[in-house]
Simulated scan of single mutants.
Amino acid sequence: MAELITDRDLRHAIESEIRNANKFVFIVSPYIDLDEDMMKAFNSLKSEVVKIIVYRQSDKSNFKSGISNGSREFLKSLPNVEFVAVKNLHAKFYINEEVGVISTMNLTKSSNHNYEIGVDINREEDDEMYFECLEYLLKGIFLGQDSNIDIERIKNIIPKRPFILEANAKTVFINGEVLDINTFKSFHDFCNTKHGYCIRCSNTEISFYPNQPFCSKCFLEWNKFKNPDYEEKYCHRCGMETNTEINEPLCDNCVEVYEFEMEREWKKTKVKK
């Protein structure tokens, strides 16, 4: 859930977001003047992490841009860095592949002493808000008349939306798109798993289908109280003893495999269209 943060906590959240980026990090700040801690955060990144620096372009009466010379030279020394100058930029937000911060804070040394406020968002918990930030960056800023970036550069640096599966017994959404439940069930014909494990008793005499992870006996027991957060004992796919529940019946490893298989079949249907 999105969380309100202020002052030092806000600065720490931005620094942590930079430091923990594994694929990309977008810095959207009209004014940028990095202090030593922020430079260390950038230096800690793997070379393959794409770093997009979006700053304010000054008007013609002032040739100095919103990014200090020292910060520009430092960032230019890093691999996979893109600079985007935007006239009239006032928005400030920072985002990597997992989290984002919408903020009043510029990424400058002087901001460390200001009263600042922001919102910390998590892609997994705040999916809609997270992608609205990326959409605003793309459509509202990059594709606006005040940006100096062209379409080809945008294609190279904008991250693709990851595969997101939301499913229950009656409805399935993939990347926000409604999928017919029967089509979704047909994907299971191509799963490597041929039977499931009851997440309460590990009975293997049930089909593998994460929306129905109980054997009939255990479902009747669960149905007496209908507590979706009740802690169960086994992974529905591999049978490993682990903490599960009816809405999260797979261990972390099986979630990755299952989503890979679902994405593979989903892409096949998209190609046919």
Rank of each mutant, 00 (worst) to 15 (best):
E3F: 07
I5S: 01
A13Q: 08
I14R: 08
S16Y: 12
E17Q: 14
E17I: 15
R19N: 11
N22A: 12
N22Y: 09
K23A: 12
F24S: 12
F26N: 10
P30F: 05
M38K: 10
M39K: 15
F42P: 06
N43A: 15
L45Y: 09
K46V: 02
K46H: 13
E48K: 14
V50C: 06
K51I: 14
I52T: 12
V54H: 06
V54Q: 09
S58T: 07
S58K: 04
S61G: 14
F63A: 10
I67F: 03
G70N: 12
S71E: 09
R72K: 15
K76R: 12
S77C: 06
V81H: 10
E82F: 14
F83L: 09
K87M: 08
N88Q: 10
H90I: 09
H90N: 12
A91Y: 09
I95N: 03
N96P: 08
E98I: 08
V101P: 06
K109Y: 02
S110L: 12
S110H: 05
N112C: 10
E116W: 07
I117A: 13
M129L: 15
M129F: 09
Y130P: 02
Y130R: 03
E132K: 15
C133R: 04
L134V: 05
E135G: 01
E135Q: 13
L137V: 01
L143C: 06
G144Y: 00
S147A: 15
N148H: 10
I149G: 10
D150R: 08
D150V: 10
I151Y: 11
P159A: 06
R161D: 02
R161C: 01
R161N: 02
P162Q: 03
I164S: 04
N168S: 07
K170T: 11
K170H: 11
V172A: 01
N175Y: 01
N175V: 02
L179H: 00
Y197T: 03
Y197L: 04
I199A: 05
I199K: 04
N203I: 02
I206N: 04
F208S: 04
K217S: 09
C218L: 06
C218R: 04
P228W: 00
D229Y: 10
Y230S: 09
E232A: 07
K233V: 03
Y234S: 05
C238I: 09
M240P: 00
T244Q: 11
E245C: 14
P249R: 09
L250I: 07
Y258K: 03
F260S: 14
M262L: 15
M262N: 05
M262C: 12
E263D: 13
K270I: 05
V271G: 00
